[in-house]
Design a protein around this nucleic acid. Sequence first.
DNA 1: CCCTGTATACTTACATACAAGTGGTAATGA
DNA 2: TCATTACCACTTGTATGTAAGTATACAGGG
Lengths: 234, 234
Amino acid sequence: MRISHSRRLEPGSTSRRVYSSLREAIIAGELEPGQRISENELAERLSVSRTPIREALTLLRDERFVQVVPQLGTFVTRISSAAVADAQFVREALECAAVRVAAERADRNDIAALEGLIRRQEEVVAETNYERFALLDDEFHAAICEISGRGFAWEVAQRAKGHLSRVRRLSLPQPNYLSTMVVEHHAVLDALRRGSPDDAEAALRHHLRMVLSAVPALRDEHPDYFEDEEERSA
Amino acid sequence: MRISHSRRLEPGSTSRRVYSSLREAIIAGELEPGQRISENELAERLSVSRTPIREALTLLRDERFVQVVPQLGTFVTRISSAAVADAQFVREALECAAVRVAAERADRNDIAALEGLIRRQEEVVAETNYERFALLDDEFHAAICEISGRGFAWEVAQRAKGHLSRVRRLSLPQPNYLSTMVVEHHAVLDALRRGSPDDAEAALRHHLRMVLSAVPALRDEHPDYFEDEEERSA
DNA sequence: CCCTGTATACTTACATACAAGTGGTAATGA
DNA sequence: TCATTACCACTTGTATGTAAGTATACAGGG
């Protein structure tokens, strides 16, 4: 529990700041899966009352980032393979549908913007900066959804991602991971340039499934981060 | 504002009851688009304090069912054609992806269950009961997602639906609407029976787009329910 | 008549107090 | 030594109080 020291609160309403702060802390692994978090302690650390804390936790619970057990405590959810698969399915469905539209709508400016993003990614690959690459990767996928005219799809996909983001963050330090990603981004861009929805969808689908391949290794490395014996309850 | 009289609170935690109650009231149109709702008034009507009201509104704001303006008021969002299109895109992408999987996985029991649902729908069509049909329609689509092994997709789709549900509810009283729906359900089921992902996807996509066709007529009938001059703000 | 400034009655955002329930722990008895 | 029981510290859920901001109605001056 080192939120207040390591992470400054961004501008916005208090509860919004708390929400963003906690969400990022969970995805970044600063709050570990299974860890119990206390409303009172959070309120003290962040120097706010319990009310905005509770509002933030309400949202995080809705995203399955935390699990609230009445009169017992609030816990950071463990990563469930089933939940990861669910998130993958949602993201794949939404982004692949978006890229098909994008392939038909992308103009020269759109293509140029994507090329610029990939160039920046290549720079980051050279310096092996996982943190910045993750941001640029998100930008690339968001840009595709934006080109399709359905930026909302990216919002939903990112929302549903949940556990997926945590897995990705954990799985970054793998050999050739970043360079492989860039190659696949190129494949998607080529398909967009040709205006081929089928090729673009296939390339993106293949790309999106790369992340999943790392899950088994992660389970071996951090078995306590995963929780698969019990299904998600309503 | 006739919540307390027309709608009983379901079991569950207080804030959860308030949330469900308000959500259904908005979708059903009991709370009209653009209407201002007061935390104090809601708390009084539902005989609870403002705290659970605020938690429910936090969730509803996240789903774009309400818009909260600080120090001014909370308003039921108007229906935006862009938001409806977004919801349609999300639903279409998720359910079409699910039905492809379902076409490959459905066994005799699954097909029989869907047949049973359609039979019940035919009964409801005979009595022209829009309310019950809406429930059975949801059950049908949820069942398809369930068969695909990705029930989560239905949860996300339903969440994203938002304004879409409100449009559907408004658009029900149209001639031959229900019988057309059943015919299209049959088409989807036939494709599933044949185990053809392509046909199932095509049939479902066609079916899902039926709802949208009613939007223009609705805008003419209830122009004050729609809000399209300003884009949704972050 | 019109414009302007002010008081007021609302609103949400946040802080705090109280209630109800849980699990661990230590004391007590066999 | 072990089982049982009562207690206590802690949790979240709910209620209420305080602060700050907005729109509106109204009075007064031009």
